[in-house]
């Protein structure tokens, strides 16, 4: 009885895994539909659209928050770095 149960649950797990893979594959396929053609990058190519625009400001802010709050990192490596009080 137990063996049947395990086999059934294994079946379900396998089904779940394949469903998960199908969804992931569809998502990745979806990524192919997202995005732009190279000649549509006029706005994305602007300096202010870069993810690290204001890199100097971000670096200075992260140093402040690193030394004043309990959490750091996320955007890039959290690292160690200073004995700031």
């Amino acid at each position: 009885m137990n063996i049947i149960k395990i086999q059934t649950s294994n079946k379900y797990t396998k089904k779940l895994i394949s469903v998960f893979f199908i969804i992931t594959a569809m998502q990745l396929g979806g990524c192919a539909n997202l995005g732009v053609q190279p000649w549509e990058r006029d706005l994305l190519a602007k300096d202010e659209m870069a993810l690290n625009a204001d890199a100097i400001d971000i670096g200075l802010d992260e140093h402040i928050y690193f030394s004043k709050e309990g959490t750091s990192g996320g955007r890039s490596f959290a690292g160690g770095g200073c004995g700031c009080n």
Partner: peptide
């Protein structure tokens, strides 16, 4: 990082430290 369209892009990071 994913470009969504001509005006939008998103970034998703997971980090472990």
């Amino acid at each position: 990082t994913q470009v969504i369209n001509r005006r939008m892009l998103v970034q998703l990071n997971y980090s472990y430290s």
